[in-house]
Design a protein around this nucleic acid. Sequence first.
DNA 1: ATCAGTCTAGACCGATGGTCTAATTCGTCA
DNA 2: TGACGAATTAGACCATCGGTCTAGACTGAT
Lengths: 207, 207
Amino acid sequence: MAGPRFLKLPPPQQQAILRAALEEFAAHGFHDASLNRVIETAGISKGSMYYYFDSKADLYSHVALTELGGLMARLGPVPPLDEGDAETFWSVVEDFYLRAMRALIASPQLAALLRGWSSASKSPAFQPAQGAIEQESTPWIELALAAGQKVGAVRSDVPPTLLLSVVFGMGEAMDLWLMSQEPDDESLPATIHSLIGMIRGAVAPPN
Amino acid sequence: MAGPRFLKLPPPQQQAILRAALEEFAAHGFHDASLNRVIETAGISKGSMYYYFDSKADLYSHVALTELGGLMARLGPVPPLDEGDAETFWSVVEDFYLRAMRALIASPQLAALLRGWSSASKSPAFQPAQGAIEQESTPWIELALAAGQKVGAVRSDVPPTLLLSVVFGMGEAMDLWLMSQEPDDESLPATIHSLIGMIRGAVAPPN
DNA sequence: ATCAGTCTAGACCGATGGTCTAATTCGTCA
DNA sequence: TGACGAATTAGACCATCGGTCTAGACTGAT
């Protein structure tokens, strides 16, 4: 797992390493990123790198978690979802999604990082480190789905795992599509409204 | 691109190479598959391999295309989708999806191959070979979507590229989920019905 | 001053995808 | 049949990869 040894470094050096790693991972994705380039950019030796982190995957997950934490902090607290009716549920979700997308558009490196994660996470070698990130992101969706079911906004007639998979897949596809559009801040709300509408159509209780 | 040189080989040797490659790619995915293992299993030298194919990605795309072609052939002709009303459109889609899934379940190696493709295809190195496969699969979805719009089964109020992305993402997620369920042939139709219902909810015209 | 523990540097390892050249096979024409 | 040129093959070779290992530099305590 993530080493406490890394956290004992002087913060500037921590940042130098994290910055180099983020740059490399965002530019090339997990597989094609080169650890050698990272240590060269960061100005440390390979021995040191492997003293701080267990593996490439360990470094990646640490970078991803740190950046994700920063994003969440910038977004502020997650609004409660299980108080109100179905309509307010969806409007709250839409609002939060809009804010998240705005933040993501503002930091394209993070966007690239998260984009690459879903491809990397399927690799067997990634399995150990995968848990950490997944436990940071999927529980949120799970909670949101459960809350949606509670207020009648989300169907309960299919297995929860299917619901989760589909929402995750749609979210991934939508994020990717959205980024490829280079969206302007003006038309974004309307676009997000369409996207949430499609998710809603998929997971809302059938008539 | 795919070499005509490979096609000049005696068919048995072609099959030996394709079989070895399929085995390796299905078992380890694109990135973690080893070309050295493939040539060892196939009983050819590295020089020959690179005489037949330009690169690892080229070999992969050739294997994937061949297998995909075989699957399509086994499925038979694609039924016409633009004749009838929305309801028949969805029932035809559902029927075709059911047949495709049955075929996919019957050949787990092909399923593993296609599963791995979506992860591999995002890699920059894969870009050249990606086009070939994508042009084999996405046009079908595009045509289906266009037919759906013609008969009023699919919404026309969002960009077609978004529709395509979302359907692709949902399909990917559903296939993955379905495979992880080890579905039995008996309950499959009902499950597929749920899945198509979700896609329908996402892309059907809003009220 | 010495010793134990922490940390660093970089040579080293097996394996990878890909290149290159020398040799061999093969079809063709004399 | 012999010979020439192109098609094909074999495998040594290359840079690079993620990861290991050891020799030494530092640091704080006794």
